[in-house]
Structure formats: C-alpha cells, structure tokens
Design a protein around this nucleic acid. Structure first.
Lengths: 277, 277
DNA sequence: ACTTATTTTGCGCTGAATGCAACCAACCGC
DNA sequence: GCGGTTGGTTGCATTCAGCGCAAAATAAGT
C-alpha cells in the first residue's frame, strides 16, 4: 500500500549524488561541489553524504580535488563506459536501422571509421531480393556513402590532406572535387546529414548521418543506400529522417541532450606548422 | 586489525557487478550476462545479484534485454560518463590525436595517471587493420609507453620509490633499470618527449609527451605506439612532433604560453594521492 | 508432458546505515 | 591573538535494510 521497494535506498542516494555532481549548470559550476552543498541540495544529512562520498571515492566513482576538497565525477565511470561503448553500439543501433530499412525499404548500414577506411559493422537489408553483403567490409572513406558523415568533425585542413592523399589520379570529377566534399561536410555540420549521388557501383547513392557516443565524438554513421535515385527533394526528406534517427540513437548511447551538432568548441588547429613528414 | 571500514558493502557489490558487465573478453561476450553467470563469477548469492541488478536497472545503470534476459550497462552510466572531466579532456584532445594518427599512420592514445596505473582515455587507430581496443583500460605505469611522460614532474626520489615497489622480480633488464628510467624522464623534462623501446607486447615501442592543464600540472600524455620500430633518428623526429602537438593541446586546455617545462613549482608532497593501502 | 537451467521471492536474523550532536579545521575580519 | 562563520568528519545507540537459505516461479530444452 505504501510504495514499491523497487530500488535500494543506498543506491538511490548514491545515484542522486552522482547526478548532482554531473549537473553542470547550477551552483558553483567552476569545478566540483562540496559536501555541504550537495547535502543541502538533496535535503540529506551532511554526515550521510560525507560517508557516501568517501565510499564512492574509494571505488573511483568520484574524485576529490585534494586542495579545494570538492568532489567531481571520477575516472571509473569513464572507464566502464569506454570499455563497453564498442559492443554497445551495434546492439543499440539495430532497431534504429531496422526502422529506417522498413520505412524506406532500402538497405541500411551502420559504419565506423577505421583509419582511412569505412568499415560496415551491420546491415539491415531491404525487402527486395538479393543484396550485396557489406558487413565486415571496408572501403576507402572517400568511396563510402557514410564517409562525409564520419568526417564531419574533422578539421577542414585534415580533410583536404586526406582527400589529396586519396585522390591520386583524375578521379576528382567522378566523386566530386575537394570543394564539393567540404561543402557536403559543411552541410552535415549544419543540417545533420549528407546526400551522395554516385560513388560505389553497388550503392549508387544514399544519405547518411553521424552518430555520436557518450562523449560527443562521432562514433559511427547511419547510411541508407538508394538503388534507384529518387528526386532531389525526396533525398532531402530522407536525409532529415536519417539525421533525426541518428540523433535519437546518439541519445540512446548516452549522449547528453546538449551540443547536438557538437558546435561546442571547434578546437584550434592541431596541425599548425608541424609539417614534417 | 580485522578489516578496514573503508567502503560500503552494497556499493562495492554494485561496482563489482558493473565491472563484470563492462568486462567483455571472457565468457559469453556476445550480448550481456545472466544473473547466474554474474553471481557465480563474483562468488555471491544469486538472489543478491538478482536484486542488485533490478535496483541498478531501476536507476538506469544497467539495462536488460527483454528477450534474452541478460544485463548490460545502461544509458545512465554513459550519460554520467560523458560529463566527467576525462570526457572533456578527450573531446578537446581528439583532433590532435587524429592529426598524429594520420601523420604517422600509427595508433595514437591519450593516457592519464591514476594511482600507479595508466588509464587510456581514448585511442585513434591507424589505417592498418584490427587493433586491440585500449580505451578504458588500465596498465601499470611502468608498463605503459606513456608512463615516463606522466611521471615527468615527480621527484626523483618518489620515482625510485615507485619503481622499487613496482619491480618485484628481475624485470629490470626487460623494461630498463631504475637509472634508465630516470635518464628517460630527465629527457622528457628537457626535450619534452620520451622514447620507449619495448614494454607491452602489443605496443612494442612508442613515443610520448606530457600534456599540461591550465595550472601547468601534467594532466595527461599523448602516446604514439610504433608497431615496426623505425630508426633511432626517426623516433626522435616523431618525438619532437608529438611534443609539439602535446604543447598545442596544453594551450588548448588553458595553459598560458609561458613555462613550458613548468619548472615553476615541483610540488612538495604529491604522495597524498597514493592509491591502495 | 517431463526435466533441467535460470531467476525470483518469502522470511527470520544480523549487521550495517542512519541521524543527531559533538568535534575538528580552515578561513575571516578585527 | 580572538570569537564567529562555514565546511567537513566522527562516536554512538537505534533501527531498518540487506543477507542467505531454501522454496517457488519461470523459461528452456527434450
């Protein structure tokens, strides 16, 4: 009659504490929070919070600045998440891919970037008959429909470098020149998806959108290949849907609500003058 | 003298469970883990694990596949992890790592010191095929390529202490003796980077350089592992580039242009942070 | 259907978390 | 130096929540 004894009290308390520590935005955001502040915010006993925090620290869930005595989230959370993110990606993405595959009735793929190659992790085929199996196959990033989405966070300079290295011959016209690429990528940054016309023979055209993991980095891309190219407007429609799906997948992977385009901080050029090769 | 009332029992149990869920590599890696398997692996009561998992699920720390009934880490954990200090560091460092990875076409890592272990925060793989995933994994500081860079600000005496504690057997020759270490570290202080020959099997050799945060303290290290060892001179070239990149990253983190060697204040007693005991 | 494998639940008992208050330690202005 | 204020830890009796055992429920084979 009272309530459900669903979750244990101690755990709930710990989670509340972690949530407070995670919550940037209110209070002295500067760095970390003191015991008293947390206790007051949760309406709990100081002693309780103090002890809980010491336990959490012993486990590495939080860490304490030795000088300011303030707590913040610890390395253990990061470590746990980082080790699992990889395997989690495919599993969590599957229903999203299937949704798109049935919605458009086109082959839908999940791709990741490895070096300068795009690796297809999983595919959901359309209802139409045989398809080429892409799972486990790598193709050069400039050839893949998902390429533009996967590179969206790269510095323009790095992209140019990659393109110049990967476009030895006069293929420029075939897959679009450097400027076309940069324009496409800018489109990914603003609109959230990419539209490609002609690249690999098998997947003539397609739309793709970047998927971000918990840290906000682009971890993968959803790519829908289109066999018979529809009208331009239709492609854009599809792109918007794919982008939205990719965004929801990102959230399911733990990406916090903020910074969808990751416009947060385009960090300064790491290359600089270090040209030596 | 029986035991230490360090950490609470329930929390420790929960952490052990999470650690099992994060640890893919043994057991039915495929998808999550069942209650029984976890209980057996931890040597705990099934009932205990069952209840703990339900509580963790209610908090979103783990999630259960409704059909296979297996557990795996949940969105809440990832969401929290995204807001750690380490995540911020990773996000800022990523383009710098990528720059090095493409420049050398070698795996590039960002590592931090945690107690006497080196935790790899993020890795950017080279174009060459499959590599071991190091993200979220810790290795002893004496085994890591980044170790020398991370310890560069320590007092010689403390380094000796650490080495003596960490070198129980006759490994000295394998990874270089005390004096070799101190010489290497002195090299980091003067030249800004470290070169290591043979440590972990997987990352045979590499170069690394320390990254400093706004106060000038070493917060992390960039480490480029080299699979096929190139000539000595080439390694030194790479070292210089890595050091320069690390310095740019430091600046991006808020380090003022001055005091690159941070000879400013060799902090008197960092020993307080010593881990287990 | 039966048998096995896996997970959940009921329930006394014990140990660990709770809350209060006292205690400790900085920090601040004077 | 002193009293005051803020921030954090510790001692201790009470009490409640988690523990383990075993039995019930559920799923999965055969």
């Amino acid at each position: 009659m009272s309530e459900k004894p669903v979750s244990s009290a101690g755990l709930r308390r710990d989670m509340e504490i972690l949530e407070v520590l995670a919550g940037h935005g209110d209070g002295p955001d500067a760095d970390g929070f003191g015991v008293n502040w947390i206790a007051q915010r949760l309406g709990r006993e100081k002693s309780q919070v103090s002890r809980a925090l010491r336990a959490l620290e012993a486990e590495g869930m939080v860490e304490r600045d030795p000088v300011t005595r303030r707590y913040r989230l610890g390395w253990r959370l990061f470590s746990l998440a980082a080790r699992t993110q990889q395997s989690r990606l495919v599993r969590v993405a599957e229903p999203f891919l299937r949704h798109l595959a049935t919605l458009f009735d086109e082959d839908t793929h999940l791709c990741v970037l490895r070096g300068e190659m795009v690796l297809t992790l999983s595919s959901v085929p359309s209802s139409r008959a045989y398809h080429r199996i892409w799972e486990g196959v790598s193709v050069p990033v400039i050839m893949a429909a998902a390429g533009r989405s996967l590179l969206a966070d790269w510095e323009d300079e790095q992209i140019r470098e990659l393109l110049r290295a990967a476009l030895p011959s006069g293929l420029d016209s075939a897959i679009g020149g450097e400027e076309q690429w940069l324009a496409d990528i800018e489109h990914v940054r603003t609109a959230g998806y990419a539209v490609t016309d002609v690249e690999l023979e098998d997947s003539a055209a397609g739309v793709s959108a970047p998927v971000r993991e918990h840290r906000g980095l682009i971890a993968a891309a959803i790519s829908v290949s289109v066999t018979r190219t529809p009208a331009e407007s239709r492609m854009r429609e599809m792109g918007a849907v794919v982008a939205e799906t990719a965004r929801r997948l990102s959230t399911a992977l733990g990406l916090p609500p903020g910074a969808p385009g990751s416009g947060a901080d385009r960090s300064p050029d790491p290359a600089g003058s270090a040209g030596g090769r």
